[in-house]
Computed example of a mutant assay.
Amino acid sequence: MPTSAIPTVDLSPFFTAGDDESCRKKCKDLIAEACSDYGFFQIVNHGVPLDLINQAMELSKTFFNYNDEVKRECSSSPDSPLPAGYNKQPDHSPDKNEYLLMFPPESPFNVLPTNPPDFRHRSSKELLRSDGENTENGRSVSPTTTKILEEMFKYFVTTCEILEAIINDCLGLPPNFLKEYNNDRSWDFMVTMRYLPATESENNGITEHEDGNLITIVLQEDIEGLEVCKDGEWIPVIPSKGTLAVNLSDAIQVLSNKKFKSATHRVVRPKGRHRHSYVFFYNLQGDKWVEPLPNFSSAIGVKPKYRGFYYKDYQALRMRNKTHPPSTPEEIIRIAHYEI
C-alpha cells in the first residue's frame, strides 16, 4: 500500500484582496516542497467554479456516449496540421482512451461538436439571424447558450497563470520571469477524455510518462485511476469534489536544472465503468529555446544537466513516439534524451 499522499494546497489567498502575505507564503512553501518531492500536488479554491466543473463533466459524458459516427463528425481532416477535435486511440495502442482536443477558443484549427448543444460556443451575434430568431443547425436555441468548453479553457488559463507566478517565486526567479519567457498562449490545449473499462487481462489507460510542457492541470471525476510515481512507488491521486490535480512538466525540470521534478504518472482504468477527465496543457511556444537557467547552473557553479533544445523539436520527437511506436520502452524519447 502507498505510504505517501499527494499534498493539497488551498489557493484562496491568491484570489482575495488585501495583505494576506503570510498565507500566500505558506502556500508557496507547500508548493515548493511538493514540486521538489513529487512534481505533483492538488489544489482547492482555484478559481474554477464548481457548477462549471459539474456541467463540463456531465456534458463530456453525454458526448462520449454518442456512437462513433456522431463523434467523428467533429474530427479534423487527415491533412489537418494539428489533431484537433475527436480522436480515438488505435486498437494497437497500449493506451485505451478516446478524447476531444481543443486549442485556444480563437484557434482556426478547432473542430468542436455541435452536440450536446451546450458543449461548444457560438456567440450570440453568430446565433442571431437577421429575422431575430436564434438558431443552430436548424434548432431554436437561447442566445445565452452555455459556453462550456471555452469557459473551461479560459478558467484553466487563469489558474495556470497564477500557478506559473507561484512557481516563479518558489524558484527565486526575478518577478514575472516565467510570464515573460512563456508569453504566447497559442500553443495551449485542453482535452476531455474517456477511458474504457478495464478488462480481466489489462487495465492501462495511459502508459507511464512525463508531460513535455510547462504545467498540466487535471480535473478528475470521482473515480480513481491517476497515479504518480515517487521513489518507485505508485501513489494514487485521490479525486475529490472541486479539487484539481497539478503536475509540473519537462520544461520546468530543465529550466530549473532538476530543482523541480517533472512527475512520472499514469492512468489505470477501473473495472466495470468508464472514467472521465479534463486535462489542460499550459504550453511553450514552439520556437522557444529551453535549457537550464544560469540561476541553477553556471551562476552557482553547477554543471547544466541538459543540453539546450527548441521546444518544437522535442515535441516532434514525442509525437513520433505515438506515430511510430518504438519496439522497446527504452527507445521511447523522453526528456532524458537531452541529458548531459
Rank of each mutant, 00 (worst) to 15 (best):
F156I: 01
R273P: 01
V228I: 15
E164Y: 07
S298V: 12
M193A: 12
I206D: 06
P7C: 11
V302P: 01
L52W: 10
S130K: 12
E227H: 11
Y338I: 04
D51S: 10
T159G: 06
D169P: 03
E330L: 03
V228T: 08
L317K: 10
I53A: 02
D19G: 08
G47L: 11
N137I: 02
K305F: 01
V48Q: 01
I332Y: 12
S93H: 04
E227Y: 10
H92T: 11
N168L: 05
G39D: 04
P81A: 08
M190L: 14
A336D: 14
T199G: 15
S107T: 04
E21I: 11
E58C: 06
T144H: 14
N54Q: 15
I162R: 15
K26L: 11
E150T: 10
S256T: 03
S75T: 06
S327W: 05
C27H: 03
F41L: 11
N204E: 07
D37T: 05
I215D: 10
M102E: 10
N115I: 09
E180N: 14
Q89R: 13
P236S: 08
Y278Q: 05
M57G: 00
L244R: 06
H209V: 09
D188W: 04
K26S: 14
E330R: 13
A34E: 03
H121W: 05
D19P: 07
H209Y: 07
H121F: 08
K312C: 05
R307A: 04
K147A: 15
E210M: 10
E73G: 13
E150I: 02
H274Y: 13
T159N: 08
K154E: 08
N115T: 12
P94M: 05
F156T: 07
D19R: 13
S75W: 09
L293D: 09
T243H: 05
K303D: 12
L52K: 10
N213I: 00
V9L: 14
Y181I: 00
F309W: 11
D231Y: 04
I238D: 00
Y310N: 11
K28N: 02
R139V: 12
K303Q: 13
I332P: 06
V290P: 15
R307E: 11
D188A: 00
F14R: 09
P117N: 07
W187E: 01
C160F: 04
S77F: 08
L30V: 01
I166Q: 10
T216R: 14
P294N: 09
E224C: 13
V228W: 15
G47P: 05
G212P: 02
L173R: 13
I223D: 03
P175Y: 14
E233P: 03
R24K: 15
A198L: 06
P90T: 07
L219E: 00
I235V: 15
L149T: 05
K230F: 02
Y155E: 12
I333T: 14
F177V: 00
L101Y: 06
F177G: 00
E331M: 05
M1L: 10
I238V: 14
G138S: 05
D131Q: 09
N65S: 14
G85T: 03
D20P: 01
G212A: 07
R334N: 13
Y282A: 00
H324D: 09
K288H: 04
